[in-house]
Nucleic acid binder design. Structure first.
Length: 265
DNA sequence: GTTCTCGGCCG
DNA sequence: CGGCCGAGAAC
């Protein structure tokens, strides 16, 4: 038999996730359909709570519609806003898997609280980043970031970034697939210096000696040459950005002058 | 044992 | 009514 079931890609989820819709063939509920998702590893998910539990903080499913597999901004409003008295109870009851831990979807590796706007003058905007950094984490949580890729709006993967050879991954699997994400996360979650794992014991037995305040990266030193190279890269990036902005504004100018001609004709 | 499927509860 | 999940059926 050839692929009877069609598992389709699901753009709203990280790459590799598949969605499947199965129509019920018999019984009282014949005609009704069930929707399932499959993780990149093939694990099956049959409800949004189940999906939330698994994806944790890496994806904000707040406005994710399980049935259609799309992000529905309309769900934002439909989400019951919590009253202040509810917030006091948050520590007790079950966490709201949809919205209790909001994160920016534009950069899910950067754990930063998102301001929930609620139209009440007495509400205070939370400014403590600690809440995000103090949450308990798994020992090698960075491994969850494996496979994250930057992509543009067409979902084309943008070229991967090359890291200096001096930077080496540490931990249960020797690949570098999470190294960039781990370093980027470390830089964004803390203002403390990033040194990598300075204890040599951590290299031999990371499960015991890992310094959890540092990313899964061997200790490294930054040389003057590294700094000069980086300065050059930044200059180059600024230059091409300048060019792009210039070209864009020229294009806009040309476009609007064409519009004018159209109106006058 | 695992996977598939539909029933039925509950919000 | 639809999401979610239990549990029997099917494999």
């Amino acid at each position: 038999m050839i692929m009877e079931k069609k598992r389709t890609d699901c753009p709203a989820l990280p790459p590799g996730w598949k969605k499947e819709e199965v129509i019920r063939k018999s019984g009282l509920s014949a005609g009704k359909s069930d929707v399932y998702y499959y993780s990149p590893t093939g694990k099956k998910f049959r409800s949004k709570p189940q999906l939330s539990r698994y994806l944790g903080n890496t994806v904000d499913l707040g406005c994710f519609d399980f049935r259609t597999g799309k992000m529905m901004p309309s769900k934002m409003q439909k989400n019951k806003q919590r009253m202040r008295s509810d917030n006091l109870n948050l520590s007790k009851g079950k966490p709201d898997l949809n919205t209790a831990l909001p994160i920016r979807q534009t950069a899910s590796i950067f754990k930063q609280p998102v301001t929930k706007v609620v139209n009440h003058p007495n509400n205070k905007v939370k400014s403590d980043l600690q809440r995000a950094t103090e949450q308990p984490r798994q020992l090698f949580w960075e491994k969850r970031l494996k496979g994250l890729r930057a992509s543009d709006v067409t979902e084309e993967v943008i070229r991967t970034m090359e890291l200096p050879k001096a930077l080496q991954s540490i931990g249960p699997d020797s690949s570098d697939e999470t190294l960039l994400s781990a370093l980027a996360s470390a830089l964004h979650m803390s203002s403390a210096p990033i040194t990598g794992q300075t204890s040599t014991a951590a290299e031999k037995n990371p499960a015991i000696w890992l310094n959890t305040a540092q990313p899964l990266c061997k200790a490294f030193t930054v040389t003057d040459e590294d700094i000069r190279d980086q300065e050059l890269k930044v200059q180059e990036a600024r230059r091409s950005l300048e060019e792009a902005l210039m070209a864009d504004s020229l294009a806009r100018a040309a476009e609007s002058s064409q519009d004018m001609e159209g109106k006058e004709a």
